[in-house]
């Protein structure tokens, strides 16, 4: 069953405030695949993720297999693009994780996968006092901690330094493979992420390219996606 479909998107149209944001988009995703969605700013990448999560109204068909009729039967984790915590909110890292029914062991393990050597002291820190990089890593760990079937990540590495990114990606990909998770990741960087992807979806309101990274990531295609020549 490893190669069976987990997501089918057909003729997806999304209109927000009278503006067409996604147009006639179709693609499939298999279980255990890592899909990276690329595109310039305003291409509709985040909107696509939120539509897949049923957070926005849409036309067309989104089927999460095997439970197309019961969206709730599929367990999805989500890392939103913006996540701000008030500095004065007395919410500890541990309490943040305990919004989900998870053990302390699972919390520490999830944090270690994103490169945080978590101590008891870290768990007692206020979420609002973490640095932006730490908060981002914590949020990724939060999405993974209860081992969802699919994880949707929207610009997960924003605020994390360049050196950190590669190690985290290495670590995350290992974790995802180990847990048989399907990943959909939005990014506008084309470096380290794409090398680890199984599929790339290049988007600018409509589908521009869809396929394996080595087929998609060519200078000519990138120029079409971003509107000017970019090289790796």
């Amino acid at each position: 069953m490893a190669n069976s479909l987990i997501l089918k998107v057909k003729n997806l149209n999304v209109e927000l405030d009278g503006e067409q944001v996604l147009e006639d988009l179709s693609f499939d995703l298999k279980k255990k695949e890592i899909l990276v969605i690329l595109g310039p700013n305003g291409a509709g990448k985040s909107v696509l993720l939120r539509t897949l999560l049923r957070l926005l109204p849409f036309e067309g068909k989104i089927s999460w297999v095997p439970s197309s009729q019961h969206f709730k039967n599929i367990h999805i984790g989500y890392v939103p693009e913006s996540f701000v915590v008030s500095k004065t909110l007395p919410l500890s890292v541990k309490e943040f994780f305990q919004f989900k029914p998870v053990s302390q062991k699972a919390i520490l393990e999830a944090l270690s996968w994103v490169g945080i050597k978590a101590s008891k002291k870290f768990l007692e820190k206020r979420l609002g006092t973490l640095s932006s990089g730490q908060l981002r890593r914590t949020l990724i760990a939060w999405a993974m901690v209860d081992e969802p079937d699919v994880i949707l990540l929207d610009e997960p590495m924003v605020g994390i330094d360049i050196h950190g990114r590669e190690t985290i990606y290495d670590s995350l990909v290992k974790f995802w493979q180990k847990k048989n998770q399907t990943i959909i990741l939005v990014s506008h960087e084309i470096g380290e992420v794409c090398k680890k992807a199984d599929k790339i979806l290049a988007l600018n309101k409509r589908r521009l390219f869809y396929g394996k990274p080595e087929e998609i990531i060519t200078p000519q295609n990138l120029a079409k996606i971003y509107g000017s020549a970019i090289s790796l």
Binding site: L53, L55, I76, F83, V85, L89, F99
Partner: peptide, 10 residues
């Protein structure tokens, strides 16, 4: 904290 996150959690 984040309404979308809460909705995704059902």
């Amino acid at each position: 904290l984040n309404e979308n996150l809460a909705q995704v959690e059902g």
